[in-house]
Amino acid sequence: MQQALTQADYASSVVAVPPIALNTDYSVNAGANEAIIKHIEGGGVHVLLYGGNANLYHFGLDDYRSAMQAITAAAAPTTHLITSIGPDFGKAMAQAPIARDLGFKNVMVLPTNFPADPAGVANGVRKLADAFGSGLILYLKREHYADPDELAKLIAEKAVSFVKYAVEKPDASKDPYLDAVLSAIGTEHLASGMGETPIHDHLGRRKLTTYTSGAVCIAPTAASELLTLYKSGRAAEAFELSQPFLEFEKVRLDLGGLQVLHDGLRLSGIADTGPLMPMVSNLPVGKLKPVQAAVDALKSAEKQAISRALAREKRAAGL
Rank of each mutant, 00 (worst) to 15 (best):
K303Q: 15
Y57L: 13
R65G: 14
F59Q: 07
V107D: 05
D62K: 15
G233L: 00
P18E: 01
A96Y: 02
A146N: 02
V163E: 13
V125N: 00
A75M: 05
V17W: 09
D175C: 02
I270P: 02
K174L: 13
A166G: 06
L128F: 03
Y230T: 13
L319M: 12
D62S: 11
L253S: 11
T83K: 12
T212R: 08
E225V: 14
P18R: 01
T79W: 02
G264N: 06
I199G: 09
L288R: 15
H39D: 01
K141T: 15
A156R: 01
A70H: 07
S84M: 03
K158E: 15
Y165L: 04
L203N: 00
S161R: 12
D130A: 08
A73G: 14
G264V: 03
Y230A: 13
G233N: 06
Q304C: 13
Y177C: 14
L178H: 08
I270S: 07
A238G: 11
Y64S: 10
Y139S: 10
H262E: 09
L5N: 09
P111H: 15
H202P: 06
P278T: 06
L246M: 11
G186C: 00
G60N: 15
G214S: 15
H46R: 14
I20L: 12
T72M: 11
R315V: 11
A215Y: 03
H80S: 13
D201P: 01
A238D: 00
L22H: 13
L151H: 04
R266Q: 09
Q7C: 02
A184F: 13
T112Q: 12
A297K: 12
Q95H: 04
L178S: 03
L253R: 13
D25F: 02
I306A: 14
L261W: 07
L102N: 07
A54W: 01
Y64C: 10
E143D: 00
Q243W: 07
L246G: 12
P18V: 01
D179G: 05
Y26N: 05
H39G: 01
P176S: 00
K153T: 07
N29V: 00
P77E: 07
S173M: 09
V125Q: 04
Y64F: 14
A11L: 10
G214K: 09
F59C: 08
S307C: 06
G51W: 00
G124C: 02
I85Q: 06
A54P: 04
A75G: 00
D117W: 15
A159P: 08
K169W: 06
G44C: 00
I36V: 15
R315W: 06
A94F: 10
R142W: 10
H58T: 03
M93E: 11
E188Y: 11
E150Y: 02
P176E: 01
E313L: 10
A92E: 05
V251Y: 04
D149M: 09
I98A: 07
V163I: 14
I306L: 10
N33W: 11
M279N: 08
D147S: 05
H262K: 06
L226D: 01
K158T: 07
L136S: 01
Y26I: 04
T273D: 12
Q95F: 06
S192P: 10
E168S: 12
G214Y: 08
A122H: 15
G204K: 10
L110E: 03
D296A: 08
S12P: 03
A222L: 14
I306T: 00
A8Q: 12
V160A: 04
L203H: 09
A21F: 06
A129R: 11
F89Q: 13
A129M: 12
